[in-house]
Design a protein around this nucleic acid. Sequence first.
DNA 1: AATAGACTCAACCGCAGTAAT
DNA 2: CATTACTGCGGTTGAGTCTAT
Length: 332
Amino acid sequence: MGRSPCCNDIRELKKGPWTPEEDDKLVSHIQTHGHGSWRALPKAAGLNRCGKSCRLRWTNYLRPDIKRGRFTEVEEDMIIKLHSVLGNKWSRIAAHLPGRTDNEIKNYWNTRLRKNLLQMGIDPVTHKPRSDLNLLANLSQLLTNPPNLGPLMNSWELNNALRVQPNVAAEVAKLHVLQHIFQILNTPNSSSSLQNLHQTMPLNMGFIPHNINLNNINISNKNTTNIPINSSSQLGFCQVPNYNQEIYQNLDTNCDKNLSNNTSYEILDENRLPSLVNISPEASTVTNQVESNTNSTNGGSCVWNSNTDELFQGWEKLLDDGTSDLWKEFIK
DNA sequence: AATAGACTCAACCGCAGTAAT
DNA sequence: CATTACTGCGGTTGAGTCTAT
């Protein structure tokens, strides 16, 4: 009944790191005979290893098509995006990164990318803002008045919790709020998300023009969101691209489809996080109905017919904050 | 220079799905 | 159909290396 016993050989099989001699034996055997049955391979190749160990050594290290060296930014980007869709399906992620093994990607994720996301306040499992950062909801004063953060920080719960220095805490706060904005732009249900933004980020902080009617967000189509400006002094709308998980629902299939056409990177690039809305001084102060950034694949377009200084006051303040190289880099 | 702690990554372990008998 | 082996995958480990003190 069933297969014959897999292994009658009870000799002690070697474990641990492979020697160059063992590598040579394995490589030369596979090059001349192919691996065939992994179970039978060690004996045929003269190796005192189990087949599983041979398979692992070959697939993760000796295979000739393995790419060595550091991950590129494009690869990092792909891993993060694919992980947000596929989760810990390392082999499937690796299928989209030629020359990289699932083991290598898994290691890189666990040692680098995961930590980077955590530092940015992003949950590496859900790829959404960490819920424990809700304490940062009322940080408008921190953001609008960084030089006086010291006294403010005394009343900040997180400061006590983290026991961080005020300037460091300010940087963390800024990053979290920015990230919060990006995540909201990424959320399919933009309307409720913007309501949430309204509640958690006071309008006078300068991030959102206070003439945006948050009750009247128009999801014009599946690719963009129109944010109307409807106060008596300003009329117009701002069209921003939606960046949401929906786009990725069929990503895996699409990537499979497009890998053969070498276009998988293009597919992914289209779904990058949106750039900050690009609006020139001319567009904001002089020209009516000027669309900017229309040629960008990942940007949006804005139509304003009045001064938008208010909207960007907060950004400028932050950019002008000379104490924050990290902050400037993040903005860029 | 010595040491401890952090980091990296190759390798192993165990499980699950599939194939063979 | 039941049993067992094979294969692939994801989680974990631990030795070696790097870095900060």
